[in-house]
């Protein structure tokens, strides 16, 4: 278990620039730290037959039942090979707690000073739909994930453009 700590000195403007980062199928994603509750290793999971394919199962998170959504499936990316164990990024979304299954966890990074830009139109549609934009960092390009839309398994119509 690796809870994300919020440094007490961090100001509100700065947390908005901080991202909890992770990799999904080689893409480098980030979710604003204040949307992330915690990060967990693989958890025992109960499958949910007949649910959307992106719903991998249900996790018991200290008595709360949390739906796990596989970001690879949700984003239309190739499936993870059986040997790779996903990590859980637990996010708060629309009043619920949802687990996003990712390949690997990165650091919490500060993207202050790098502006958010619209995602390039060549990025696959499935990814564009749940990304707020990109922040081109010196050594990588961070895709800023909209956790609410990522946790909605069916695409929501409220922001069809996928860019802010």
């Amino acid at each position: 278990m690796r809870p994300v700590s919020h440094a007490g000195t961090t100001t509100a403007t700065r947390t908005a620039e901080q991202y909890c980062t992770f990799w999904v199928a080689g893409l480098f994603f980030g979710v604003a730290v204040d949307e992330v509750q915690e990060v967990l290793r693989r958890q025992p999971m109960t499958p949910v037959p007949r649910a959307d394919r992106a719903v991998t199962g249900l996790i018991n998170l200290r008595g709360q039942i949390v739906t796990a959504v596989d970001l690879r499936v949700r984003l239309g990316l190739p499936d993870r090979s059986g040997a790779e164990l996903p990590m859980n990024v637990i996010v708060r979304s629309r009043g619920e707690v949802v687990s996003l299954l990712v390949d690997d966890i990165g650091d919490v990074i500060d993207a202050a000073g790098v502006d958010l830009q619209p995602a390039p139109t060549t990025v696959p549609r499935g990814v564009q739909d749940v990304v707020r934009g990109v922040r081109p960092l010196p050594d990588s390009i961070l895709l800023v994930l909209d956790a609410d839309r990522a946790a909605d398994v069916a695409p929501t119509p409220d922001n069809p453009g996928g860019t802010p």
């Binding site: 999971m45 739906t67 629309r94």
Partner: peptide, 27 residues
């Protein structure tokens, strides 16, 4: 009885979920 997330609302087969004695979730 515990509620289940919005991702599963469309599935009519489930009314909710619960946690069994071994800590696993059951629908």
């Amino acid at each position: 009885v515990k509620p289940i997330g919005r991702q599963l609302k469309a599935v009519s087969a489930y009314a909710g979920a619960t946690i069994m004695g071994d800590g696993r979730v059951a629908l």
